[in-house]
């Protein structure tokens, strides 16, 4: 089941959930076990990291963003996982110096992807958006993903007026910006 990425591309692009689910279930135990042993974190953090890593894995394969398609799916997933732990969840490895030699999955972490920094930055925003309340998330997603006008957002989310929706959007954006700044301070202190 530990297939090369190249052999999975077709199923992933066709959104074959049977294959995706089987792959998800197959790689999960090893991922959880390895990251729990090598990082300072709770098991819930590793589960979170796994879901995020698999999500990135899925979109990168779908969008042809994997530069090295001959590597194993698990190697690629572990490489994403390491960056998620450090850059998104701010979790440090237990032993930075020996980590590269601990497991084959840790070896290939360079040049697997075309533009992963961008993906991790986005993943940070996803994590922080989940810390906002649902209304805030909806306002921001309608505005920046669905490109709704303020009038449409007000009507969709039952705000009294366009200006109330606009005020809410600004407040939500401000809160999110504060969370991002805080996250960057913590991340910089770990680097």
């Amino acid at each position: 089941m530990d297939l090369r990425i190249r052999s999975l591309i077709k199923d992933i692009k066709e959104d074959n959930h049977l294959v995706l689910k089987a792959l998800y279930n197959y790689m999960r135990p090893e991922f959880l076990s390895w990251f729990s042993r090598h990082y300072y974190c709770r098991i819930e953090d590793v589960e979170d990291a796994y879901q995020r890593s698999f999500n990135i894995f899925y979109f990168n394969v779908r969008e042809d963003k994997v530069a090295m398609q001959e590597i194993k799916a698990s190697t690629y997933l572990f490489s994403i996982g390491r960056n998620i732990m450090l850059q998104v969840l701010n979790k440090e490895p237990k032993n930075k110096t020996s980590l590269e030699n601990v497991h084959e999955h840790a070896l290939e972490h360079v040049s697997i992807d075309y533009d992963m920094e961008d993906a991790y930055r986005k993943e940070v925003i996803v994590r922080l958006l989940n810390q906002l309340d649902e209304t805030c998330r909806n306002v921001l997603v309608l505005s920046f993903y669905r490109d709704f006008s303020m009038e449409s957002i007000a009507s969709e989310l039952n705000f009294k007026s366009e200006s109330v929706a606009k005020k809410k959007k600004h407040l939500c954006m401000k809160k999110l910006k504060e969370l991002v700044d805080k996250h960057n301070i913590v991340r910089d202190s770990l680097a």
Binding site: Q51, N55, Y58, F59, D118, R121, K122, E123, V124, I125, V126, L129, R137, L140, V141, S143, F144, Y145, R146, M173, L176, K177, V180, D181
Partner: peptide, 19 residues
């Protein structure tokens, strides 16, 4: 910083169904 946040929100919307 705002550009990163706006791109991140758009990505959140895109990846939500699979998440």
């Amino acid at each position: 910083s705002y550009r990163e946040i706006m791109d991140g929100i758009a990505y959140y919307g895109k990846q939500q169904p699979f998440a």
